[in-house]
């Protein structure tokens, strides 16, 4: 579905992403992992068309850099790490914005209401539909914006830290929801996560980045190996995580 070839992003003279390539196929959940400043969010921003880049970005052979924004939004839904609003829109209005790209010339969107209702139901936001987005907790706000992405009905979801601010029950609920969403044919997920356990448990594939370069990519079990993670993070990640788990053993 998504093909990224030799992607390079520069901010001024600084190269923040160098020669990265990635192919996301149907039914795959790719996890982008790496330390802070590795270029994970930059890769996502490039895929969203938010930063100028070199290399090739294609969706099923179609050049993403030349694609009209509305068409791109019907194919790719993106959830940012930080989502806020300066004005007190209701949750329903925020979720409804996800249907922007589906509206016709006269604003008609026959499946719009149904998609918004379903997205709010799936993210547990139906009860808060009238609430001002400014009055929500961080986790509720994240769920409202995830509902917006779901209402967008994309084929590829790109999620930057999707469970950021969420407590454990909601982390579980959201990852289960994304996994269920992925089961339908013709869909894929690309997400940035810091929690390597989540990456290993839920991801089918992973890409490890460090300093703007790709260290490894492939099936999650192969890409997230001890040696690669040690090189990426500069520490014995496996030992650290095993120590954390040991605390819970009787």
């Amino acid at each position: 579905m998504l093909e990224i070839e030799h992607l390079t992003v520069r901010y001024g003279r600084r190269t923040v992403l160098r020669d990265c390539s990635l192919r996301v196929g149907e039914g795959e959940w790719w996890m982008l992992v790496g330390p802070n400043g590795a270029g994970k969010s930059t890769l996502i921003r490039a895929a969203a068309g938010a930063v100028p880049c070199e290399g090739e970005l294609r969706f099923e052979g179609e050049d993403l850099t030349r694609m009209k924004p509305a068409r791109r939004a019907r194919l790719i839904g993106i959830l940012d790490q930080h989502n806020t609003s300066s004005y007190d829109y209701s949750v329903e209005e925020i979720v409804g914005l996800g249907r922007y790209a589906h509206r016709g010339m006269l604003g008609a969107d026959p499946r719009g209401d149904e998609a918004v209702e379903r997205a709010m139901r799936e993210t547990g936001m139906t009860g808060l539909r009238r609430a001002s987005v400014l009055s929500l907790s961080g986790g509720e706000r994240q769920r409202a914006f995830l509902a917006q992405v779901l209402a967008q009905d994309p084929r590829l979801m790109i999620l930057d830290e999707p469970v950021n601010h969420l407590d454990l029950p909601y982390q579980q609920a959201i990852f289960t929801l994304i996994a269920d969403w992925l089961r339908k044919p013709g869909r894929a997920v690309l997400s940035v996560v810091h929690d390597l356990s989540l990456a290993r448990c839920w991801g089918t594939h992973a890409m490890v980045l460090r300093g703007g370069e790709c260290l490894a990519r492939g099936r999650a079990a192969e890409a997230l190996r001890d040696g690669i993670l040690r090189e990426a993070y500069g520490m014995d990640v496996g030992a650290w995580m095993r120590d954390q788990l040991d605390v819970w053993k009787e």
Partner: peptide, 8 residues
Amino acid sequence: ENARHIGV
């Protein structure tokens, strides 16, 4: 950014 993501 949100506007860009939803297709504006």
